[in-house]
């Protein structure tokens, strides 16, 4: 019997992205540059996160014309973002043939209590998380891939590092626990018990885990890989840098060879200026995207 949209097919899609870089693009031309630079997928957006931050107001699903242009322009998978809880935006993007949906805190949440029931969809979802509990809640709702939230559009890696370190440390702790402690820990973390049990047995998340939210340089990408990321999302970091093509290629190479410091040095030379960065403490609490999601 033929089955579409199974958990294995949806999670497997993310497995194929491992060791790669997924790049934010706002038009077909940028998508082609990303593909030529060796991106494993592109995220089609109306605005990159730093521009969303600058524009303020309500950020919604991208203009569908842009999404369609990008779908036509490249042969690699195309992702797109829907608002947290906005299952109609998600269904609309699925109907266009988008390969992966990001239920994303970068957009203004549409539901302040609930996320999308992602199990119902044929298309797989990626969701952001700051810790193990949040990651397992999203997986419990049907997410097939997790990424750190970081703080999008800042070019500041500190939050992504904090989120990845927190998750990895919690995973190690859960793995070392005795069975007796698991239920109390599930309550502690706000995580579904069965998924926590799986983490206890395997010592890893049940899905692929990427870094996102602040990656701006090849060294940032390599840092996140060494902290345990399976791959990297780069949002504003590429097309807000001085030389997007070079930056894109350099970040791809640094993600593949994340412990080869001579190579990272070589690809990092002469890149020009990275995207402008933002100090996290200068962002008002209400404007911090990572707080969105429940």
């Amino acid at each position: 019997m033929v089955q579409v949209g199974t958990s294995r097919v949806k999670k497997g899609m993310a497995e194929m992205q491992k060791g790669g870089v997924i790049m934010d693009v706002v038009n077909a031309e940028q998508a082609k540059i990303a593909e030529a630079a060796g991106a494993v997928a592109v995220m089609a957006l109306e605005r990159v996160p730093s521009d969303i931050r600058a524009a303020g107001g309500v950020a919604r699903m991208a203009d569908l014309g842009i999404v369609e242009d990008v779908l036509k322009a490249v042969s690699i998978p195309v992702m797109a973002k829907a608002r947290i809880g906005h299952f109609v935006e998600a269904r609309v993007l699925e109907s266009l043939g988008v390969d992966y949906l990001d239920e994303s805190e970068v957009l203004t949440p549409a539901d302040d209590l609930y996320h999308i029931n992602k199990k119902e969809f044929t298309v797989p979802f990626v969701c952001g998380a700051r810790d193990l509990g949040e990651a397992l809640r999203r997986i419990g709702e049907g997410a097939s891939m997790i990424r750190t939230k970081g703080e999008p559009g800042t070019g500041n890696i500190v939050e992504a590092v904090r989120h990845m370190r927190t998750m990895m440390s919690q995973i190690r702790k859960v793995q070392a626990m005795s069975y007796d402690e698991l239920m109390a820990e599930a309550k502690n973390l706000g995580a579904p018990y069965e998924l926590l049990e799986e983490v206890h047995k395997t010592g890893k998340l049940p899905v692929v885990n990427f870094a996102a939210g602040g990656v701006a340089t090849p060294a940032d990408a390599a840092l996140m890989m060494q902290l345990g990321s399976d791959g990297v999302f780069v949002g504003s970091g590429i097309f807000k840098s001085e030389n997007p093509e070079k930056f894109a290629r350099a970040i791809v190479e640094a993600t593949t060879h994340y412990t080869d410091y001579e190579l990272i040095a070589r690809v990092s030379k002469g890149l020009g200026t990275a995207m402008p960065g933002l100090e996290i403490s200068k962002i008002r609490e209400a404007d911090r995207m990572q707080e969105r999601g429940w």
């Binding site: 019997m1 033929v2 089955q3 579409v4 949209g5 199974t6 294995r8 097919v9 497997g12 899609m13 042969s75 998978p77 699925e94 043939g97 390969d99 992966y100 044929t122 298309v123 797989p124």
Partner: peptide, 15 residues
Amino acid sequence: ERNAFGRQKESFEVH
């Protein structure tokens, strides 16, 4: 032939 069975939502498993 690349992507010959369609996009991700058409991806499948079968015995």
